[in-house]
Design a protein around this nucleic acid. Structure first.
Lengths: 244, 244
DNA sequence: TCTTCTCAGTCATCATACAACAGTTGATAT
DNA sequence: ATATCAACTGTTGTATGATGACTGAGAAGA
């Protein structure tokens, strides 16, 4: 498999050049996930792959390094490279999907809602007084930011994240934190103006306050309900907005 | 007599010698995630890092390749290596945490519960007749497996996954699928025997049937409730079991 | 039988060289 | 004076040879 003149008119997205090492890594990834290389089996040795793919050791090694970083294989000095027998380590990523921008946002929001509704309930059960204090602080900072005319999206997210941390469940908090960047930097801004903005913000603040109070009261059902109402409204808003 | 029992325990929790490239990759990762290298900024050139870390170019390049595979940086030939402007691409992984085995299981289960409860509601709203048919099939396969004495954990998960897919939300389904390996291969088996097992399985089947029926009736509230009951019981079971 | 040694195979690292690409500079032609 | 282009510098990408470190198994020795 010599180089097959891949340079002609490949799909030249803005990204452009498909590095050889990425090419090889992709092929190996396909072999593994396609089941042709079962967990525990040994990959061809470096020299074998050098011949098989017709590339240099540099390329092969960088490809293996990439797979190894994903936990898909692990290399053992003096023995060889083996497919991980515990594929549970391969990471989870959102976004390499062929959804429209609208579906993308809506689905992320639904995912977020599912998690946060229950998280609010857990937080209400388990929040420490320290948690409560920080949640209230985050609430104040959010209100302050919005009052001073800022977007407040970051403070909004910080409020939600603090609630997730109050669940005492590190995985839930970690996942919410992971979801953050997918939610915050939405450039599609709803440019509400003047009085309309006031009304909108007031409703938003009330929803947030309801959540905060339910958690303060350690009222699980109320916290779940308040969070569901809050996120459902945001979801409906997004659904209609991006529709146009 | 060469029974191919290469089932080695891959318990290499502490790899005696962390590879140099992984070491460097870790340091760079810390610099980036710690905010010392802002998105868009250029990393030191390869030669600079060679000096700075006192390693060879091979090591530096493999470290960068690993980060690049995670989407943390992207290298451009002739220009340099840059911190990704959209850190939203860095993957999510569970497990590299220092939780006890018990907390690990319980927290994963809680994460799963949060998602699946809401997913059941969405599935009830949106399931197609095709979805329903497959959910019912999965249910039958699960019952059949358990009746024939098998564990049935895989069929159980397949049932839940099929419900997640009925939400029509690819991200939710994808995440449930990701969670699968963390749930299924629990070796900590509760060796219930004889009649006790019968009773346990009967209750389990009834819970599953309730979920299935609620989804069939497109009754959102009932589906949520049934799923919550089902997973809460499983969670409580896990909590007490691993306690000992 | 048991221990020790040797050896071939493999990945890990180092070093060097060249190719491909991007940006800058400066000479040249008009 | 301006435009064009060639050369130069610095960067990542790829190729290659050499050496070290580690593993497993068989050979050699007691």
């Amino acid at each position: 498999m010599r180089d097959d003149k891949a340079g002609e008119l490949e799909l030249r997205s803005f990204k452009g050049r498909p590095k050889l090492s990425e090419e090889i890594a992709g092929q190996l990834r396909q072999l593994i996930q396609g089941g042709e290389l079962m967990p525990g089996t040994q990959l061809p040795t470096e020299n074998a792959m050098i011949e098989q793919f017709g590339v240099s050791r540099t390329v092969v090694r960088e490809a293996v390094a990439a797979l190894s970083a994903d936990g898909l294989v692990n290399a053992r000095q003096g023995r060889g490279v083996f497919v991980a027998n515990d594929l549970t380590q391969q990471p989870f990523r959102l976004g390499d999907s062929r959804l429209s921008e609208r579906d993308h946002i809506v689905q992320i929001m639904e995912l977020r809602l599912s998690l946060e509704v229950e998280a609010a309930g857990l937080a209400a059960q388990r929040r420490t007084s320290e948690d409560l204090r920080e949640i209230e602080d985050a609430f104040e900072r959010m209100v302050e930011a919005q009052r001073s005319g800022q977007e407040g999206a970051e403070q909004d997210f910080a409020f939600h994240l603090r609630i997730a941390e109050a669940t005492q469940n590190t995985y839930i908090a970690k996942f919410i934190r992971y979801l953050g960047p997918f939610i915050i930097p939405r450039p599609a801004r709803r440019t509400v103006t003047g009085g309309e903005r006031e009304v909108y913000l007031e409703g938003l603040t009330q929803e947030h306050a309801n959540i905060r109070d339910a958690i303060a009261d350690q009222d699980e059902a109320a916290a779940i309900e308040a969070m569901r109402i809050h996120l459902s409204r945001g979801l409906a808003l997004n659904r209609s907005l991006v529709q146009s």
